[in-house]
């Protein structure tokens, strides 16, 4: 009983949040200054045709009815047709999503692998040079526009140093040579045993993923540092020091262990945040993911595609946030009380 109730409550808030998300996209769809009826019948249609079409499209119904219909359509995976690609938006999104997922995942791996040790290190050296440097790096993550850093990265590492591949997911002569299994090029090329494609895909993904990772790192390092400082101020740490436990063990075994659960939420939050960051990064790197799809649709005033992409990004964002929250409650007995 005590186990079931929180789960039900969790599902309820999740459902309400998704409904709210749908309400927002529904409202946005309604404020668009394009008359959907005129778009169908043309601006020379008679008033009778106009009214008949309006009724046939269900635009005469009360807003509540229209909203219910919209929710029903989305629940069946129907997001309308994209004006620019001519295909169903849901199909488009399913095609572009793996590219974003691949980049954001590599980004979060880089962010965690560098950010957590940096935060621990900064806490150990609180107030000293290393701490200040890490603090400035963290602040830079809040002050540098992702698209600008992406452009500069392209100039330095692609154009001048030639260390990495340029825009896109893979060199163009390899494009389409890797059969799709998962949609993740790094994985697909390995499944296929195509090392050349793997190397090419890696050289293309590494720069955008590192830049994304940098923004995750800024937040993760900052939070790790403050969690660690909280632990290091506790009495059990003093006890361990008095007992003569080596400092390295104090840091990692005594202070770091209890914050691992807290870090899950932080990592979850920044993973979701990377989805947002990838919108700008994908545009700069011509990365064929959901962010690029969204911005292209925006510029073409392709409302179905814009709302569909917003909906999917919002849903994934909500899913990751609520998921890491639930995981935190599950793992930390203090949060369950």
């Amino acid at each position: 009983m005590t186990r079931v109730l929180p789960a039900a409550q969790f599902l309820l808030t999740l459902a309400v949040t998704f409904l709210g998300l749908l309400a927002i996209t529904f409202v946005i769809g309604r404020v668009v200054p394009i008359d959907p009826v005129v778009a169908v019948v043309g601006d020379r249609a008679s008033i009778e045709t106009y009214n008949a079409t309006k009724e046939a499209m269900g635009l005469d119904d009360p807003l509540v009815v229209q909203f219910a219909r919209y929710v029903g359509q989305v629940a069946q995976g129907e997001l309308g047709t994209s004006v620019s690609t001519g295909r169903p938006v849901a199909e488009d999104l399913a095609r572009v999503f793996p590219a974003t997922f691949e980049m954001a995942t590599l980004g979060i791996i880089i962010g965690v692998a560098l950010g957590v040790p940096m935060g621990v290190f900064a806490a150990a050296r609180q107030g000293r040079m290393a701490d200040q440097i890490i603090r400035v790096i963290g602040l830079a993550g809040y002050a540098i526009p992702a698209f600008w850093l992406g452009l500069i990265g392209l100039v330095i590492f692609y154009a001048h140093l030639r260390w990495v591949g340029g825009p896109g997911r893979i060199d163009f002569f390899l494009d389409g040579m890797v059969p799709t299994h998962t949609g993740l090029l790094l994985v697909d090329s390995l499944i296929d045993g195509n090392l050349e494609a793997f190397r090419s895909a890696l050289s293309h993904i590494i720069l955008p993923a590192t830049i994304l990772g940098f923004f995750a790192l800024a937040y993760i390092a900052r939070m790790t540092r403050s969690f660690m400082l909280e632990q290091l101020g506790q009495e059990f740490i003093t006890t361990a020091r008095v007992k003569g436990v080596p400092e390295r063990l104090i840091l990692w075994r005594h202070a770091f262990r209890p914050i691992r659960v807290q870090l899950i939420t932080v990592i979850g939050l920044s993973y979701a945040g990377l989805l947002e960051g990838s919108v700008m990064i994908e545009t700069v790197f011509s990365w064929p993911g959901i962010g690029n799809y969204l911005t292209t649709a925006l510029l073409n005033a392709d409302m179905n595609a814009v709302l569909g992409a917003t909906l999917v990004i919002g849903a994934v964002f909500v899913g990751i946030n609520k998921g890491s929250d639930a995981l935190y409650r599950l793992l930390d007995p203090r949060a369950r009380a």
Partner: peptide, 24 residues
């Protein structure tokens, strides 16, 4: 607060993008 949480649970940039798309 329900309303606030719904807005808060969406990525800011994407929300702003969608509204700009609607408003022009």
């Amino acid at each position: 607060m329900g309303l606030t949480d719904i807005f808060l649970s969406l990525p800011r940039l994407v929300l702003a993008l969608a509204f700009v798309a609607a408003l022009g």
